[in-house]
Design a protein around this nucleic acid. Sequence first.
DNA 1: ACTAAATCGGACACAGACGTCCAACATAGA
DNA 2: TCTATGTTGGACGTCTGTGTCCGATTTAGT
Lengths: 203, 203
Amino acid sequence: MTPTDTTRNSAPRGARPRRADAERSQARILEAALDALASDPDVNMAEIARRAGLVRATIYVHFPTRESLMEAVTERAIAEVAQAMAAAEPERGDPAEALQRVLTTGWRELGRFHALVGINARQPQAELRRRHRPVFAFLQPLIERGQHTGAFRSDVPVAWHMAMLLAIVHTASGELHANRVPTDAIEPALVATVLGALGARPE
Amino acid sequence: MTPTDTTRNSAPRGARPRRADAERSQARILEAALDALASDPDVNMAEIARRAGLVRATIYVHFPTRESLMEAVTERAIAEVAQAMAAAEPERGDPAEALQRVLTTGWRELGRFHALVGINARQPQAELRRRHRPVFAFLQPLIERGQHTGAFRSDVPVAWHMAMLLAIVHTASGELHANRVPTDAIEPALVATVLGALGARPE
DNA sequence: ACTAAATCGGACACAGACGTCCAACATAGA
DNA sequence: TCTATGTTGGACGTCTGTGTCCGATTTAGT
């Protein structure tokens, strides 16, 4: 649950808190990893270190293993997106409208993390799902609500809707990243496709 | 363009044709690779050889490099799916109906290649697109036709629709593979979601 | 100014995978 | 039956990347 024992800042348990530069380093590593992963989901630690302006060994001070770093990166990103979505009040108003609201909010936040797509792609499905739990957490109730009111099609499982929604969003991110669709055309297209996919009645 | 110089069967250029066992070996390798990739998109050559009941070195007789093998596998799979779809006459009848027809046909054929998903996932986007050209080739005209007749929403680029369709199909394959949705519920769900995503008017 | 915490830099061992090579054996096909 | 074509088994070199270690040096914080 806890990110890693590297986040022992919030728990200055007896000992003195971490030094400010350590804090900074860790932040730069996460930042660099995010950057690097955007262009190549298989970047090695050396490259990440280079981008962070640090030495490879230093990374291991903060993250015991490559995997733990990856986890930290994605966890953080997903958490931030989830938080943004939560702030968009998924429980308020008409389901379709609410979904649109939450979706666009999440999408904009996601813009900060082109990387996500790349990393996600090469993750075992189960892992991927586990990671996205924070997002599912309040997307699922919203979809269920919509199914009840008849706003979304209810002849398919919620899980199906969730998976499709996620896939569509990720693909959209990919299209954006590949510059294959005019940037400002994406958001409306995304909304239209998602609502359509969930079988939203046009009001 | 040509798969590899390993397919020199169709061109018995002066020399005598390949021996039957060589033919068989190559087939078994492709088969094994497909299998193996289904469970782990990063299988190593040793494992593929093991499954094929051959020795690692033998693979290199038929495929000069790992990459070439991967290419051969995906190319073949996609070609077969594409062919099946083509046989479903995408140009005939009402666009939405035609799409449904082509889609389910392709989907069933795809069932033989669970692997595709895994491999695709960790491929650079551009490569992925290039590979899927055979599929796009006659899916695109169909979608365009639908946009003209108003069957599909035309306020988004065709490329967008294509990308979404592909993503949805792949995700469905993933759901199937993960046993997360009852098998026989998938096909109708897939059709519904795709048609919805493309904004198909319910006739 | 002093000390403990961090970073540096570079070396190291280790592991997994690829691709090559070759002598011995097996087999298809004429 | 004879021979070219394939396959075997195993060894080998190479490369890439991970994770560890440690002495030397810098820096934060009191």
